[in-house]
Design a protein around this nucleic acid. Structure first.
Lengths: 151, 151
DNA sequence: GCAATTTAGTTTCCCGGTTGACAATCCACC
DNA sequence: GGTGGATTGTCAACCGGGAAACTAAATTGC
C-alpha cells in the first residue's frame, strides 16, 4: 500500500494561461503525437516518416531535385538529407545523378520508389482519415485554413 | 553557370491528396516548426522545451508527482524522465523526495524552480502570442476547439 | 587568369529521445 | 508468510537529428 505523503507545501506560481498559449500547447502536443504515430507507421516499412517525406517531395516535384532543395522543402539540414538519401538509395528508391554543376547531385525517384509510394498510398491516406475522423469535412477545411495562416 | 540537365522522364505517381491528408500534413509541419522554435527559445535558459514542460506540469499539479506520472502527462518514457529530472535537480529547480512506496521518488518543485517559472512566464506567453498573432481571438478559440476534438 | 568567397555534399561529433535489461520494491495469490 | 508477477527508477546501447569542420567545385572581383 502506498503511503500518502504528508502534504508538503510546494511552491506554486499562479500562471495566467492565455488563450494563445493554450492553443499553442495543444498544437504542439497534437503535432508531437502525430509525428510519433506516423513514425511508428512507417517503421513497419523500414523507413522513417522523413524518408517517406523525401519520396513524396520527389514525386510531387516530378523531376529530380538537388539534396539542398529537398532539405529546403522539408526543413531539414544538409547533413540529414545526406543520411536520408543514403538509406533511400540503398533501398533503390532513389538514385543520385551527376549534374552539370558537379557539386550537385540530383536525386531521382526510381521505378521502385514510385511503386512503393503507389503501394503505400492507401495506407497513408487511411492514416490521415483516421486521425481526422473526429472532424467533419467542414471542420477539416477550417483547420487547414487556420494552420495556413500560421505558416 | 549551372547546366540544365536533359529532362529525364522520372516516374511520377498521381496521388489524390485528400482534404484530411492536407490538414494532417499542415498540422505536423506547423507542430514541428513550433517545437524547433520553442526549443531554441529555451536553449537560452540552458534547458530544453521538455525540461520546462516538467516544471510547468509540477507547477500545475501543485503537489509533488512521481516520475512515472510526469512521464505519463508529457508522453515521455520513464528513462527520459530520469534524465530530465537529473538536469533539473542539478539546477536545483526540483528535488527528489523519498516516498512511502520506496520504489517511487516524488518530484517537488523548489523555490528556485518556481522563481524560474515566474521570471520566464512573460517570455513564454510572449512567444505564444507572437506565434498566434495571425489569428483573431475567435480563430484561436476555434483552433483550440478543433485540436481538442483530435485529442 | 588567379585569389577570395560561396555553395553542395559528406563526415564527425554531440544531444535528446527510445528500447531493453536490470535492481529494488510492492502486491496478489495460495 | 512466501513466491511469482507488476511496477518504479536507472543504466547501457542505439538511433535520428543538428552544428561544425572539411572537400570539391563554382562564382565573383580584380
Amino acid at each position: 500500500m502506498i503511503q500518502p505523503v504528508e502534504n508538503k507545501q510546494m511552491p506554486k506560481i499562479k500562471l495566467s494561461t492565455s488563450l494563445a498559449e493554450q492553443a499553442l500547447i495543444k498544437l504542439m502536443r497534437v503535432g508531437d503525437r502525430l509525428w510519433r504515430e506516423s513514425d511508428e507507421r512507417f517503421g513497419r516499412w523500414g523507413i522513417s516518416d522523413n524518408h517517406y517525406n523525401v519520396l513524396r517531395i520527389l514525386n510531387g516535384a516530378g523531376e529530380p531535385l538537388s539534396q539542398i532543395e529537398i532539405g529546403r522543402r522539408m526543413l531539414s539540414s544538409r547533413a540529414n538529407v545526406t543520411k536520408l538519401i543514403d538509406l533511400l538509395e540503398e533501398r533503390k528508391f532513389v538514385k543520385r545523378l551527376a549534374c552539370g554543376d558537379r557539386r550537385v547531385k540530383l536525386i531521382e525517384l526510381t521505378e521502385t520508389g514510385a511503386t512503393f509510394i503507389a503501394e503505400t498510398a492507401s495506407d497513408v491516406i487511411g492514416f490521415a482519415e483516421k486521425v481526422l475522423k473526429p472532424l467533419t469535412k467542414a471542420e477539416q477545411k477550417s483547420l487547414a485554413e487556420l494552420l495556413d495562416k500560421l505558416s
